[in-house]
């Protein structure tokens, strides 16, 4: 098994831990953090392919990750602000309780 395989398997592990957390936990903050973990797993893939794959343009993988981190930062900020707004409204942050927008 090559290092690339290993890296990809590790990122799969991180992704699925994040997915399981996002699906199972009722606390919205933890759901958001699970999604952050999934994003991190994707970033690991970028770096793994940059490091071990045939890279025609040096540095492309890194640039991808930098942008992804920037967008993830924005996402986390907005997400947590939303959580605080929801908390102020319904006095808890259980995700299954925020169903006001259902049809």
């Amino acid at each position: 098994m090559s290092p690339l395989h290993l890296c990809l398997l590790i990122s799969t592990g991180l992704f699925c831990i994040g997915l399981a957390g996002a699906l199972a936990r009722s606390n919205t903050i933890l759901v958001l953090l699970g999604i952050e973990l999934m994003l991190n797993a994707a970033n690991i893939n970028f770096i793994a392919f940059w490091r071990f794959g045939p890279s025609p343009v040096a540095g492309n993988g890194m640039i991808f990750v930098l942008f992804a981190i920037a967008v993830a930062a924005a996402e986390a900020a907005v997400g947590l602000a939303l959580i605080i707004a929801v908390y102020r409204h319904q006095k808890n942050i259980r995700l299954q309780d925020s169903t006001t927008l259902k049809g």
Partner: peptide, 26 residues
């Protein structure tokens, strides 16, 4: 259900990764 679904996704990913032959490492 969360663990089942996550395990299925993990299985799909792992199968895809392990069945792929990449270029030899740089």
């Amino acid at each position: 259900t969360a663990f089942t679904v996550a395990a299925c996704v993990a299985a799909v990913f792992s199968a895809a990764i392990l069945s792929t032959k990449f270029h030899p490492a740089a």
